[in-house]
Structures are given as C-alpha cells and as structure tokens.
Computed example of a mutant assay.
Amino acid sequence: MKVLVTGTAGFIGSHVALKLLERGDQVIGFDSLNDYYDVNLKKARLARFMEHPNYTHIQADLADRAAVEAAFATHKPQRVINLAAQAGVRYAAENPHVYVSSNVTGFLHVLEGCRHHGVEHLVFASTSSVYGANTNMPFSEHHSTEHPLTLYAATKKANEQMAHSYAHLYGIPCTGLRFFTVYGPWGRPDMALFLFTKAVLEGKPIKVFNHGKHKRSFTYVDDIVEGVIRTLDKVPEKDAGWRGDTPDPAASGVAPYRLYNIGNEQPVELLRYIEVLEQCLGRKAQMELLPLQAGDVPDTEADVSELIGAVGYRPQVTVEEGVANFVRWYKGCYDA
C-alpha cells in the first residue's frame, strides 16, 4: 500500500514508518521537525529509513493547509496514519495556541485531504488522557470522556469527534487509537523514562510526582506499532453500536468509525518502574517526592478487550524487558 504517515520524525511515527517499509509498503512521511525538543534526535530517527527506496519525505507543518493539500494531491495515499501532534500534557500551560494549531487545525487539514482524495482508511492517534475525570477503571472505550482535564486531552477528544463527523458525512473509514503511556528506544526526552535515565546517570535527583504511588499502563513501543499496523489493515464498517437510543462512544451505527484503547493491560506503579530502571542502570535514584501535578490523573489502566477481539492485539513486552531495551539504546546513543 501507499501510506501517508504524519509525524515520521516522532517517537511512534518513526517506528511505524520503519515497520511499514520493512513489510513492503510505500511510505510518504510528513513532519515539520519543530524544536519542541532536540531536533537532532528527530533527524537521527529519520536517518534510519530516509534513504529507503520506498520512502518519500515532506518537511512541512500540518497547520500549513497548502502543504497538506499538495501532499495528498501529489502522492495520492491509499491510507493515512496521523501521528503528528503537539505532544506533552504540561507544555499547554506555556503555549496553548500551538496545540490548537497542530492538533485541531492540522487534523482538519488531514481530514479534508482524506475527503477529497478517496482515502480508504484513516487511523489517528488519540490518548488515554481523554478519560479525564473518569475514575472507573479499567478505562473502557464505552465509558464517557466528556470531562478532559488538560487542553492536550481536549484537542484529542476534538479529533475523535471531528473524525466521526467526517466518517458520517463523507463515508471515510476512521479509526482512533487511545495510546497509554508509550516508552522505549528513540523515545521523547520530555518523558519520564528518558528524564529519569539521564538524571540517574548524571547523579542528579529525579522529580517523582504523587510520591510515586500512581499507576500507569506503560506500553512498549513495539507493542504499540503492532497494534497500529494491525488496525490500519482492518477497515471499519458501520456498526450496530447503539444502546437503546444512545450511541455507543466506541462505535457508530451511522458511520464507518471505531475507537480502541491501545496499551498494556497490566498497570505498573511508578515506584516499581523506577526500581526496574535502577536495576538496569546499576545505580540508585535520588528521588524528590512531590504531590500529584495539576491535570495528572492518579492512575490509568487500559481495557484492550475490544482491540484484542478486532485484530488479535495483545502486548507482549514486560516492563522489565522494555526498560532494559531502552537503557541499552540510551547508553549506545549518548555514550553514557
């Protein structure tokens, strides 16, 4: 297939692009290489496949309507995986406008491209953060997500609703994936594992919020990629997703549209995550224990039964194995 992947210089996007190329697909990569974090890391990710004969790269911003329109018109992708977004929950307090520009306006441009160029299937990234104030766990796609606690989560909730409207109005099959705390090699420098590893190796303290007591469905990047690609290959149809007079949030009786959680079913306490990292590094962490940050939720736990039923997805990599893989990559990449 010919697949347009946005965010190919990003953490998940680079892994997805490489996997698609390995299985023989043509990939059109689209990324702005913005400076939210180290651009050299983004370039290093791209370097793994930039010269592949089936890869074409476009450096542009999704908020640039003309650039997105040109990408669709020139390359005519059959399917699209939208992973580009302004990432990070806390950065929204400093720069809220970029979230709307990238995550809402940019996503509209992708939807319009799909609409006007006969795209067979759009898979797009959402987030477990959309569950917001919901504390009913494990989080299920059938739960309400009407109360996001951060602007980032609100933009991703908007993506889900925008995609449904386009699926209904124009018959574009759309699948949204709610990612749960992804980690692994080539990860983002602003995420906990990267920050913790760097600090411990430098003998500096790490900030541990909620005194390390919260739990997360930490999900290794290879498991995420497997789920993304299996989902890409399963085009949704209209679903009898109704409960009485109320639509099911996870499906739609009026549109080819589905939402899935994608994450590890076994949540791990942050203190255990740090303990595993200490074992891999052979060093103890100096922990600065702090209260829960505003906008953070105490726990996340993924119910992935829907995705298991649909595509046979089940995460395989344990935290012990995944953290060890990250540490090996980090030491090799940064000569640590």
Rank of each mutant, 00 (worst) to 15 (best):
N261K: 00
I224Y: 05
P291N: 05
H52F: 15
A67I: 05
G171N: 08
F180V: 10
P236L: 04
Y257N: 00
E275K: 15
G187Y: 00
A163N: 04
A154D: 12
M137V: 11
E22F: 13
A63K: 11
R283V: 03
R45Q: 06
Y183H: 10
A251F: 15
I81P: 06
H121L: 06
Y313V: 02
H164I: 08
F30C: 05
F180G: 02
L259S: 02
E69Q: 13
V319E: 06
F124H: 13
V225A: 06
T318P: 12
G244D: 14
T8M: 08
T56C: 07
D61Y: 10
A324P: 08
E146A: 12
H116R: 10
R65V: 05
L169R: 10
W186S: 03
G282E: 09
S129T: 09
H143G: 04
P205N: 04
M137W: 15
V130G: 03
A125Q: 14
M191I: 09
H109L: 06
Y91C: 09
E278A: 00
N159T: 07
D31T: 01
L4H: 03
R48W: 13
P173M: 09
K19N: 09
A60L: 09
R48F: 13
V80M: 00
V3H: 01
A255N: 01
D335T: 10
V276K: 01
Y37R: 00
A87V: 14
L20D: 03
F326R: 01
R178W: 15
L193G: 03
F124P: 09
A250F: 10
N82P: 07
L290D: 11
N54K: 12
Y152W: 09
P298V: 08
K215G: 10
R314Q: 14
H97V: 12
V200R: 00
S252N: 07
L62A: 03
G113W: 02
H211D: 15
G312E: 05
G322Q: 04
Y55D: 08
A67E: 09
A336P: 02
V27C: 11
E146N: 08
F218S: 03
R90K: 11
I28R: 00
A93M: 08
P247L: 01
G253H: 15
L122W: 02
Y131R: 01
I224T: 04
S32V: 08
A285F: 11
H142M: 13
K213V: 02
K76Y: 05
H214I: 06
T318L: 12
Y99K: 07
S32P: 07
W242E: 13
G253C: 11
P247D: 13
F11R: 00
I172R: 01
D245F: 14
T246I: 14
L232K: 05
Y220P: 12
P53K: 02
P205L: 02
Y170W: 09
